[in-house]
């Protein structure tokens, strides 16, 4: 059963909270991982790996650079989840 947009945002919020310590309610679609959520390029790799496991999706390294915001990541997962 594929995850809904709300489920993906909630899941990403938990992941970002775990990795960067940002409160889950601050993780919104328009937020930039780097500028707003204290996720640097190394931590972004952790976010991606955790998201891949959670949502059964593969996010190749070349695509990671396009995932600037929570909205970008959510859209990508919605379109590619297994």
């Amino acid at each position: 059963m594929a995850a809904t947009q709300e489920e993906i945002v909630a899941g990403l919020a938990e992941i970002v909270n775990e990795i960067a310590g940002i409160p889950v309610e601050d993780v919104q679609l328009d937020k930039s991982f780097t500028d707003d959520l204290d996720v640097d390029s190394l931590s972004m790799v952790e976010v991606v790996v955790a998201a891949e496991e959670r949502f059964d999706v593969k996010i190749p390294d070349d695509d990671v650079k396009n995932l600037k915001t929570v909205g970008d990541a959510t859209k990508y997962i919605l379109e590619h989840q297994g």
Binding site: L42, S43, V45, E46, V49, E52
Partner: peptide, 10 residues
């Protein structure tokens, strides 16, 4: 491979 932390080197 995928699970090795990107923070390993620093």
């Amino acid at each position: 491979v995928r699970r090795v932390s990107p923070h390993t080197v620093p």
